[in-house]
Design a protein around this nucleic acid. Structure first.
Length: 147
DNA sequence: CGTTTGACTACGC
DNA sequence: CGCGTAGCCAAAC
C-alpha cells in the first residue's frame, strides 16, 4: 500500500501535525507516522512498516500555499529524500537553510541540534495524537538538566 | 500490459 | 547515520 485506507483523512492528519513543526527544526517521516493512531483495519506491524511512506506520499500531495512546512520533513538518515542535486532537493535545502538549519559535509542535518520533540502534550491531547518517538539522543542544546 | 518506481525504515553485516 | 535489502502495492511508463 502506497496509500493508507482513508487517504484524505490520513493526509489531513499528517498536514496538521507538520504545521506544528517550528521554523528551523526538522522531523522525520517515521516520526510523524508514529504520532498518528493506526487506522482501523490496518495491522500495527503493517502500519509500522508502511506509514513512513504514507507520510511521504502526503508530503508529495501537499497543496501549494497551504502553509504546510513540507520542507521540515526529512528522512531518518537526516537527509533530504529527493535525489541529490535534483531541483527539488536544492529547493528544500535552500528553504531549510534560510530557516537556519545546517547541513554537514555529507548533506545531513544533525538531529541532536535540529530534531523535533513534537508538539506540547496539551496540543497532542486536544488533537488525539501520540507523542513522537524521540529523534534526538542528547538533550536540546546539550544542556544539563540534572536538577 | 508487464515492469519499474517510489518525499521510507529497520535490520543484518 | 556505512551499505544493501526486504517489505508493500498503486500508479506511471
Amino acid at each position: 500500500m502506497r496509500q493508507p485506507p482513508n487517504v484524505a483523512e490520513y493526509y489531513r492528519m499528517v498536514w496538521e501535525i507538520v504545521k506544528q513543526i517550528p521554523r528551523g527544526i526538522v522531523a522525520t517521516y517515521g516520526q510523524i507516522a508514529t504520532m498518528i493512531p493506526v487506522p482501523d483495519g490496518v495491522e500495527p506491524s503493517v502500519y509500522d512498516q508502511l506509514s513512513p511512506q504514507w507520510v511521504g506520499s502526503a508530503m508529495h500531495a501537499t497543496p501549494e500555499n497551504s502553509g504546510v512546512p513540507w520542507q521540515r520533513v526529512i528522512n531518518s538518515m537526516g537527509k533530504i529524500s529527493f535525489p541529490e542535486g535534483s531541483k527539488q532537493a536544492l529547493r528544500q535545502r535552500e528553504l531549510l537553510e534560510l530557516e537556519g538549519v545546517i547541513f554537514d559535509d555529507k548533506n545531513r542535518v544533525d538531529f541532536d541540534q535540529f530534531g523535533w520533540d513534537g508538539p506540547d502534550d496539551d496540543w497532542l491531547k486536544t488533537h488525539g495524537f501520540y507523542a513522537p518517538r524521540p529523534i534526538r539522543k542528547k538533550p536540546k542544546g546539550g544542556q544539563l538538566n540534572l536538577f
